[in-house]
């Protein structure tokens, strides 16, 4: 019961903050709402008994990524004061499509019995995760390739922004 209450609370925080992100007129405010949405997701991770993900969510998303976006905003000329229109003239059509998509997906998801794990997560979930990430028979290879992705993204970002 407590779990359900907590789920509703964190879910509501995430959703409300996410709506605020897309409706905020000021880009800087949107980022602050985004941080709150990240926090809500961290709470959901705790409920899923994934404490490592919750911590990573707090440190990496709320900490690193949030700060990074704020820095990027502060370094961009004029963006802090600018009030851009939030919708264009196709908003009504898009809204109908989005609501229809939501209805279809919700209907489908409620009909399906989703598989659940038959045992609780062990006390050593971090170890399990770590082993899965380095085990060449599981996610070891995608994990290594992800490091190539990061190097490439870093080089690409530097290439785009540096003075030539």
């Amino acid at each position: 019961m407590t779990q359900l209450v907590l789920f509703v609370i964190f879910g509501a925080i995430t959703l409300a903050a996410a709506i605020a992100v897309v409706t905020a007129r000021n880009l800087f405010h949107a980022v602050l709402w985004l941080l709150l949405a990240f926090f809500g997701v961290a709470g959901l991770y705790v409920l899923l008994e994934a404490p490592f993900f919750a911590a990573a969510q707090l440190f990496i998303y709320m900490g690193a990524i949030g700060v990074l976006i704020i820095y990027a905003l502060m370094l961009t000329r004029g963006v802090m004061r600018q009030q851009v229109p939030l919708v264009n003239d196709q908003w009504a059509l898009v809204a109908v499509l989005a609501v229809a998509l939501l209805a279809v997906l919700s209907w489908l998801f409620l009909q399906h019995t989703w598989p659940t794990v038959d045992q609780a997560v062990g006390p050593d979930s971090l170890r399990t995760l770590g082993e899965a990430l380095v085990d060449p028979g599981r996610y070891g290879f995608p994990f290594e390739v992800a490091s190539v992705l990061l190097v490439m993204a870093l080089i690409g970002a530097v290439t785009i922004v540096r003075e030539r």
Binding site: P142, A146, G156, A157, T159, I160, R164
Partner: peptide
């Protein structure tokens, strides 16, 4: 997972290349 990482490697490098002539 492998598919997604591969698609992003191909994609992000292509975004950079398309915008390479920044000026």
């Amino acid at each position: 997972v492998m598919l997604y990482v591969a698609i992003e490697i191909a994609g992000i490098s292509a975004y950079v290349l398309v915008g390479y002539m920044r000026e």
